[in-house]
Design a protein around this nucleic acid. Structure first.
Lengths: 256, 256
DNA sequence: AGCCTTATGTCCGTTGTCGTACATAAGGCT
DNA sequence: AGCCTTATGTACGACAACGGACATAAGGCT
């Protein structure tokens, strides 16, 4: 058995879920890309040249307002694809895509994806299911913004991020988190302080470690579970036989 | 020229935008339905039997939380279709669909829509474009909930509703609006009072009339324009030649 | 006309987040 | 070691929305 590169397209769950024939057709064109923290993959209204399949990175979809303040709309990690508007037919969106957690991913040229989509086969069905999960995430973000406290939102955000990574450790300053959530940095400091005092997380200068995940899940609002359940429901009954074909460490079905 | 019934499927912009052949195929199966205020078309997690094409009604997608409070996620009127999760592949969603403004619409049995969708023709493309517009609306709802005042949100809500109706008059109590926005009724009373004192709207016991639309558009936050632009962009370059085939009063391209 | 339901108006103390300003501390760099 | 940048901590007044309680008013009903 040959040892593989540390990078493998099947680290992305959508790619891993493709039937062998579709995967073979696409994989030739997949291009590994490094995604440094803070890089903007799409600008608001900008023409998209590629779609991205994150493997070890997390991408944040956020809307930046006229006055410069921002709010996160959804996150995309190794469970999904960045650039759904390409196959939805709109080509662009009013939101921005920024690397929230540095890592890697694969990208595919826009025309190739569209071609694949137009075959109206399993790829289309898979991408649409993912898109529906994404819709749920956005909807729940709206609900959470309306009704829940900063601390609850922080918990949701931490858990959603963890689910899209391999470790319990996030490289992320409070300032950045505040930007994502669309709140003040001081607010994050306070909420994070509470969580640390409660023994749920530990952090220092740009590193947050979740030490008590079950504890966090008790504090978080229902929004987290709604989103997670929906991702699992929509994407986990995908043949995970597929994931076995890779030597890459498999991290359970769909999320978590 | 024969006079037509007051109801016509082409009052719905999506149906109106279909190529003649597709429209002909579908129209046979369209069933006119009355939609009384407050009726729930879908329950959270419930199996959907139909998709709905509102003509004179407005449907509110909302999420109801464990504690009973709720928040609106998006609205669907004569510009769209209710039940996107049917063709997105998920069958259900965690949200509820409630008639926000009484009226009529057409419905189509779920299997028929799926059949049409599977043809991977213009119907699919149209529905996906609409879905992207819907996604934008949800995203902007999240942003608006995060950053804007109750009064701005009320303005956005009023304008979005107006765009989906034929008149400047909404039949809607402040209590109901509060439920949609996920705020207290008192808050709506105050905000609406401000708007009335400013001469932008007039209301009394369940009726709200917008008397100064341009004025409202000056007060509303940017979220409204973002959503409207995106709907126009995604859905207005649709052949509006199509709308001419109906005797029904045509209400301009896409929205407004 | 009078009643009664329902819609709207007002008040008040509380809470969460904001805006601003500044203090401390951790770690990289010379 | 000492410096300097950057991350985090803290404090205080302002304000919007909340929760609850109650007052008024409009319109349907008998």
């Amino acid at each position: 058995m040959p040892t593989q590169s540390p990078h493998n397209p099947t680290q992305n769950h959508l790619l891993a879920a493709l039937p062998a024939s579709e995967f073979a057709r696409l994989s030739v064109h997949l291009e590994l890309v490094k995604m440094p923290l803070g890089e903007a993959l799409y600008e608001s209204g900008g023409r998209m040249q590629h779609v991205y399949f994150p493997t070890t990175s997390i991408i944040s979809l956020l809307y930046v307002m006229e006055d410069g303040s921002s709010a996160e709309i959804a996150v995309v990690g190794n469970e999904g694809i960045l650039g759904v508007s390409l196959f939805m037919g709109g080509e662009t969106t009013p939101s921005r895509a920024v690397v929230q957690s540095a890592g890697y991913g694969y990208r595919l040229k826009a025309p190739l994806l569209k071609q694949e989509f137009d075959r109206a086969g399993p790829v289309l069905r898979l991408l649409l299911r993912y898109t529906q999960a994404l819709i749920t995430q956005m909807a729940q973000t709206a609900v959470c913004n309306r009704h829940h406290s900063l601390q609850q939102q922080l918990c949701r955000w931490l858990l959603l991020s963890l689910d899209r990574l391999q470790s319990d450790d996030l490289t992320m300053t409070q300032e950045l988190i505040a930007n994502m959530l669309g709140v003040r940095r001081e607010g994050v400091t306070e909420a994070a302080g509470n969580l640390q005092r409660a023994g749920l997380i530990r952090y220092s200068r740009g590193h947050i470690t979740v030490v008590d995940r079950p504890g966090l899940e008790k504090v978080v609002c229902e929004c987290y579970a709604v989103v997670k359940k929906e991702f699992d429901r929509l994407l986990s009954d995908i043949p995970l036989s597929k994931q076995l074909k890779a030597d890459a460490p498999v991290i359970g079905p769909a999320l978590s």
